[in-house]
């Protein structure tokens, strides 16, 4: 079985200036996230189960070889990097995964993978769209937001979340693209000899297309005012009262503190008491 794992090369923590929206991140803090590492672990386990091979792919600059070497050390059989570097800028963060999916697919040309595993979303503002674009491009089935993978005979079952806490169990045809949450599995720890060997391994690099820098402007987030229903009162006076809540008994929002733990507990319990949330079950 041919298994591909897509490992991202994203900023794991980005600071946003609350006044200007300026972006700042430590270049050393780039890599793949827990979900992508979980995808790799799933890939390695399935390869063991089905006697398959794992190809790890990343789309990133030369420094991204590091995630591929980590993958090799953990047991991936082969790695490819598609050479592309995205600046840390609002236009790259606005990205939809279409370009990245295209780049990943370019690394798979001439191959016919049975299963492509991705993380649920990448760390730097990712929205989890890359896997679906990849499925579309590869003509593959998809299962996104998977929390559990099981095998049943020769087939692979994926559990994924639906709305409202229900889950759906999907049987994956081949090829399929699966994106997994970081739930349940952790990437195995590479042995020292494997780690040392991976340092020496050559990484295959193929050129990637530069992305078009789209028009996008970043600014610090401000909550959107929520729309409210139109007041229904019969008279203008009633409607004004309804909108302003003037006669409703309502404590105005307050922020207090800094408080010590004891003071905070007092305030909290006191508030609950005043609003009728005393002890006892609801």
């Amino acid at each position: 079985m041919e298994i591909v794992v897509a490992l991202g090369w994203s900023w794991q923590r980005v600071a946003v200036d609350p006044l200007t929206g300026g972006l700042d991140a430590d270049g050393r803090d780039r890599g793949s996230n827990a979900a992508e590492q979980a995808a790799l672990e799933h890939g390695l386990r399935l390869a063991e189960r089905f006697d398959g091979r794992v190809l790890a792919v990343t789309v990133g600059p030369a420094a991204a070889d590091e995630v591929l070497r980590t993958a090799l050390a953990a047991g991936a059989h082969e790695v490819i990097r598609v050479d592309r570097d995205d600046p840390l800028a609002p236009s790259s963060l606005a990205k939809n995964g279409a370009d990245t999916a295209k780049a990943i697919a370019s690394a798979l040309r001439g191959r016919s993978p049975d299963l492509v595993l991705c993380g649920d979303r990448s760390a730097d503002g990712g929205t989890g769209t890359t896997p679906a674009f990849l499925a579309a491009r590869l003509g593959a089935a998809q299962a996104l937001g998977v929390v559990k993978i099981e095998t049943e005979g020769q087939s692979i079952l994926a559990h994924r979340r639906l709305d409202g806490g229900s889950r759906e169990v999907l049987r994956l045809p081949r090829p399929a693209v699966v994106s997994v949450e970081a739930a349940g599995v952790r990437l195995r720890r590479a042995s020292l000899p494997a780690l040392l060997a991976a340092q020496q391994a050559a990484v295959q690099v193929i050129p990637g297309e530069r992305r078009q820098p789209g028009r996008a402007v970043g600014r610090p987030h401000r909550p959107r005012p929520r729309e409210l229903p139109v007041p229904t009162g019969a008279t203008a006076h009633d409607r004004v009262l309804e909108l302003t809540g003037a006669l409703q008994e309502r404590i105005p929002p307050t922020v207090i503190g800094p408080l010590s733990a004891a003071e905070a507990a007092d305030e909290l319990l006191d508030y609950l008491q005043r609003h009728g949330y005393t002890r006892g079950t609801s």
Partner: peptide
Amino acid sequence: RTDRPDGDI
């Protein structure tokens, strides 16, 4: 000895 599998150097 290190904390990795096969970790003796």
